[in-house]
Simulated scan of single mutants.
Amino acid sequence: MTMMARNFPKITEQGLDELRARKGIEIEDTLEPWCHEATRDNIRHYAHGIGDDNPLWCDPDYAEKSSLGGIVALPSFLFSTSRIISGYVGGLSGVHAMWAGADWTWHRWVRRNEEIATEAWLADLIEHKTQFAGRAFQQVYHVNFFGKDGDLVAEADSWCFRTDRDIAREEGTKYTALKGKPRKVYTADELEEFYKLYAEEEIRGADKRYFEDVAVGDKLPTMPKGPMTVTGFIAFAQGWGGLYIRANKLNWKQFSRHKGLGIPNRFGIPDCPERVHWEHDMAAMVGAPGVYDYGPERCSWLTHHMTNWMGDAGFLVNAKSKIRRHNPEGDLLFINGVVKEKRVEGTRHLVTIEQEARNQDGELSVLGSAVIDLPSRR
């Protein structure tokens, strides 16, 4: 049964003015984070949710013998410690929000069993003209992450685009070429060729990658992600937590508190907008080409690409991601990177890498960059 199109709440000037009034004010009332602490299981569940089996975060015996002396959290794990960084936006009730990018800076590793505290505020609201939905607003939040001693572990800006669902569905031109186009069905040989990239994936691990051994222009190994499936999207939500996935009484409390959040399903029951990631009709209602991956998930794939390459002795200082299109069910993704710069800053030996990921048709999915501190032979 196909869900009927309906009219959703619109972006209004009053709503925008109310939202602008929140800029710079610390957010005190938000959803409880999925993870308060970086426990062994929380770290592993998040890592497995993005397809990362690096023993530095997944194997206590290996991690204990490593240069770090024990399990640490993979950099992107911090997504699970803040709803705000993950796309829990305020204002504009009932208007769709699509997570679209982040700019992370890490100051140190998060250790096993460390509790994380956060503070956050609305940093900016920027108007854009888009192919996806015409007028859209980039809603930018800043989040600080603090460790057990109150020190700043990491900080980040992340942003969602607020779009009118009806305009995106009826007038958006971003996915015009895909409308009516049959989804590709892969042959066993095509999938086997793709899976070779998984078989060849290298986790650098204890084998140090030295600053002196890296040259500008070096290409990183291609990292595959996919094929995109609802199962994969749910695997990420298991580790990350989801923004609005709640059951029974907790679901009722959520929708009672936020009247514009619940969208009736085909049974007339209010259900979360997050089901664009597993329900095709809901995805089509907001203008997407089909059910698609999570934004923080894709950002985490880019940092996975970096941690595989840098090894245990490297440290990911900064990572940026800018999402350019949806990754609908059935897509394959190929993440590539190239070394663009080397520099020494004090005791740090920094390498800058630019990344991009394209799907099986060569369409740009996400742009990324990273700065990594590598060990030096000197």
Score class of each variant (00 low, 15 high):
residue 312 D to N: 14
residue 268 G to P: 01
residue 329 E to C: 00
residue 171 E to I: 11
residue 137 F to C: 04
residue 345 E to D: 14
residue 206 A to E: 15
residue 279 E to I: 03
residue 36 H to E: 13
residue 58 C to H: 05
residue 358 R to I: 13
residue 371 V to K: 02
residue 309 W to Y: 07
residue 219 K to R: 07
residue 3 M to Q: 07
residue 177 A to W: 00
residue 183 R to Q: 12
residue 22 R to W: 07
residue 110 V to K: 11
residue 12 T to P: 00
residue 259 K to T: 11
residue 236 F to S: 08
residue 237 A to Y: 01
residue 237 A to L: 11
residue 341 E to R: 02
residue 326 H to R: 01
residue 217 G to A: 06
residue 359 N to T: 11
residue 50 I to A: 11
residue 207 D to V: 12
residue 139 Q to P: 06
residue 232 G to C: 02
residue 43 I to N: 08
residue 368 G to Y: 01
residue 36 H to S: 04
residue 21 A to W: 04
residue 4 M to H: 01
residue 303 T to L: 11
residue 290 G to N: 04
residue 82 S to D: 12
residue 133 A to L: 05
residue 174 K to I: 09
residue 282 M to I: 07
residue 168 A to E: 11
residue 76 S to I: 13
residue 85 I to K: 00
residue 154 A to H: 15
residue 68 L to I: 15
residue 244 Y to S: 07
residue 97 A to L: 12
residue 285 M to E: 07
residue 46 Y to G: 11
residue 352 T to N: 05
residue 9 P to F: 07
residue 202 E to T: 14
residue 158 S to K: 00
residue 203 I to D: 14
residue 209 R to G: 09
residue 101 G to I: 05
residue 256 S to R: 03
residue 325 R to V: 05
residue 223 M to N: 04
residue 19 L to V: 02
residue 140 V to Q: 01
residue 68 L to M: 15
residue 119 E to N: 14
residue 369 S to P: 04
residue 20 R to W: 08
residue 368 G to D: 06
residue 14 Q to E: 15
residue 218 D to V: 10
residue 66 S to E: 14
residue 1 M to T: 10
residue 265 N to S: 11
residue 130 T to D: 13
residue 24 G to V: 01
residue 117 A to I: 10
residue 122 L to T: 05
residue 339 V to S: 03
residue 175 Y to E: 06
residue 31 L to K: 03
residue 334 F to Q: 06
residue 92 L to S: 01
residue 95 V to K: 00
residue 59 D to Q: 13
residue 276 V to Q: 02
residue 199 A to C: 07
residue 312 D to M: 12
residue 106 W to C: 04
residue 127 E to N: 07
residue 337 G to I: 11
residue 27 I to P: 09
residue 267 F to D: 06
residue 95 V to W: 05
residue 33 P to W: 09
residue 372 I to M: 09
residue 18 E to V: 02
residue 283 A to S: 09
residue 130 T to H: 06
residue 119 E to Y: 05
